[in-house]
Write a protein that binds this DNA or RNA. Structure first.
Lengths: 156, 156
DNA sequence: TATTGTTATACTCTATAACTATA
DNA sequence: TATAGTTATAGAGTATAACAATA
């Protein structure tokens, strides 16, 4: 699909891996963007639905997850709320806090979205054999787990 | 970092892989976005610099690469040009065509940018051993190559 | 006083539609 | 007439700064 990459240039092993990761990242992002666009959802809106699929979160937690400002979240949630995809609920214990949660309509859309994303990525992962797929899952998971643990340490 | 993911739910092997790919995609995108932001560059501007690092391209080819409209490219190139990062050059053989290429300043920034991206991803890939890194590179490359070939067939 | 969220403002990114210039 | 690119316009996404409400 692209290149922030283009490798070449007598690249080292590490650079090859960085390049492959970046290209794979653009590929999956392109798929998510396309599926989102089919439902008039930006990548960010799609991520909001994904995050809220199995929990409710306060505005500020959502902003932290996405790496956005709280003021940006206000606008994003406004627009999704107007479309009936999610709802705001003021916390009972702290009047300053606003929780966000999916509506029935939002939940339904989220399920549909993620079925479509899986379908769209099937041909991509289908180029690998079953054993290779398992190996790839294992390697990526190891990498991601280590990253999350490190991030958790740093935030503590 | 995130989740368009959240796995769980008695997921199948395929779903686990899709989830890992999506999470890895967000991780690399977050790194690229952060590094870009340090230089006041959006992810798209960063990709433009990356694509032009080793070639010059016409506006419409750039738009195709990025999956954007030509009108969108005009604005993106305008802003980067005002910053002195790239230049427009009307084609000698076809007066309608506009080629885009990096300036010396743009080239310098691009090199700097990609060194930083590699640095930022080192801790992530460093969680894998040398042999595992090679295996991951191989699996991702196989996957990406198959995708590019399929895409090429479809476009032909 | 500090924290949570919203509002006001400004700029970038993006698409659609209309346009200009060249072929 | 068709193609390459730009301009006009409008809306979404984003950040910074100022603000309101609650703690």
């Amino acid at each position: 699909m692209d290149a922030t990459s283009s490798a070449g240039r007598g690249s080292t092993e590490r650079e090859e891996l960085v390049d492959a990761l970046v290209q794979a990242g653009f590929l999956t992002t392109a798929v998510l963007t396309r599926v989102g666009a089919e439902h008039d959802l930006s990548l960010t809106q799609l991520r909001v639905l994904a995050i809220l699929r199995d929990r409710r979160l306060r505005m500020s937690d959502l902003a932290d997850y996405l790496g956005l400002e709280r003021s940006t979240m206000s606008g994003l949630i406004d627009r999704a709320q107007q479309r009936g995809l999610l709802a705001r609920a003021t916390s009972a214990t702290d009047g300053r806090v606003v929780d966000v949660l999916l509506t029935a309509r939002g939940t339904e859309l989220a399920e549909q979205l993620f079925a479509q994303i899986t379908d769209a990525l099937l041909p991509v992962i289908g180029s690998l054999g079953r054993a290779e797929q398992r190996r790839l899952t294992r390697l990526l998971t190891m990498m991601l787990t280590a990253h999350v643990m490190r991030h958790h340490d740093a935030t503590r």
